[in-house]
Design a binder for these strands. Sequence first.
DNA 1: GTTTACGCAATTATCATATCTATCTGACTT
DNA 2: AAGTCAGATAGATATGATAATTGCGTAAAC
Lengths: 251, 251
Amino acid sequence: MNRKDSAITTEIFPSDMRTSLGRNLTYGMLDVIGRAIVIGEYDNVAFPTEAELARKHGVSRAVTREAVKMLTAKGLLSARPRQGTIVQPQSSWNLFDSDVLHWLLERKFSVELLRHFNQLRVAIEPEAAALAAMQATDAERAAIGAGLSRMVAAEAGADNTLAADIAFHVAVLEGSRNPFYKQFRDMVASALATSIHFTNRIKGRSASIEDHRAVYDAILRRDSDGARCAMRRLIGDVLTLIGEAEATAAP
Amino acid sequence: MNRKDSAITTEIFPSDMRTSLGRNLTYGMLDVIGRAIVIGEYDNVAFPTEAELARKHGVSRAVTREAVKMLTAKGLLSARPRQGTIVQPQSSWNLFDSDVLHWLLERKFSVELLRHFNQLRVAIEPEAAALAAMQATDAERAAIGAGLSRMVAAEAGADNTLAADIAFHVAVLEGSRNPFYKQFRDMVASALATSIHFTNRIKGRSASIEDHRAVYDAILRRDSDGARCAMRRLIGDVLTLIGEAEATAAP
DNA sequence: GTTTACGCAATTATCATATCTATCTGACTT
DNA sequence: AAGTCAGATAGATATGATAATTGCGTAAAC
């Protein structure tokens, strides 16, 4: 079969496909199967065999196996002869993988997921700010300041609000000089992108900029406790809003 | 070529191979290549082509491709036609992948890595303890208590010290009822396994047990601030020791 | 002289097929 | 019961051929 005939090709190329993934059949399969797993399509049904998957999507078994292997590496699947391929429990998924994260967010908007995100952020980012206050280089401090400037510019309509917000928070993570903290880039970006629809209407942007500036100022004067508290307040506020939303929605 | 003839087979089967990985050629290749990348074997040399890798290790190209795809999924590699396969910068590696973590730790003992670990723990675990104090179920609280009991038993020689310590900290993470926190299982286990050699001699185990008990007590009485502080003290102590070690070693 | 267009070659991407190996099931034996 | 063996199934591996992509050098065009 020619590649042009593949079901995957017509299914997702070229419009729907995630840009961060490559543009070949293997990545297409990865995306389609990964999304289906996260959606829960195989929750109470047996996962297809390699041969079935290959036939259903119109690709070779080699391509199928490569996609399955990638999903195995991300913790979504495991495969054994005779038993077949099985979906792993969610607890073993690698939630910090940006593909997995993307599929999860794409699934459906969930306030609970947003709360989980921000419960993590409230642990990570204040500590990152504290580390940045102590150890960030001049260039890294400048990047944080640049992020703040972009937020100010965005308020005047000269920049994108979300992009500026992300730039600020990512710059703080970078300033921590700890590779593990830097890993939260994607997570923070996703959390902000998701929560922007949620918080936009509730609370004015100007107050938020003051909160961000407090973080920046503390980092500049190398006040790690101050930076930690300021960042904690920033995210704590969002968390409070989320809690209220859950309380009113759930009664 | 028969599987029994493969270089991988003699290279790593059956003794050296990580037990968490499967026992087939693909996982063998994954382990060998992943380790080589993390060690830095390809830092200033071009990464081999698929054909070369396959020939060098005596396996087929299909197996090689599957291993490369898994490493791509973990962020260590990227592949494009004509350009070849290239090692990604460390910043895009997925450090929360337990394989990557394992290769990193295996590389060589580094106080800096241990510090990075514990700088993350000091963010995560106190917050997890605070969440557990508020939301953990009775069963989860009991699991934390069981971990503490095992630590006491270990002191009397009736249990393994490291395993008990890990059980306690993992139970706290589970008690947070947040899937993102639960992801740090492997990281905390690795950090504890690594740091046990480091802290054992410096500070008595009994003091540590009292610190752990303080966390447990706070969680039991649903005192989230107390749990956060107690856990923070626990890990902060380790961090201080690491800092002192770096200060005396560096100059 | 600079830019564009084109074609070659290298490398990954894909396919098809055959065979091997691990493991589950169930029957058979002890 | 407990152990052993045979068949069936699904993943694991090998092989060789073809397709698609793209970096790069070269020639043509301006």
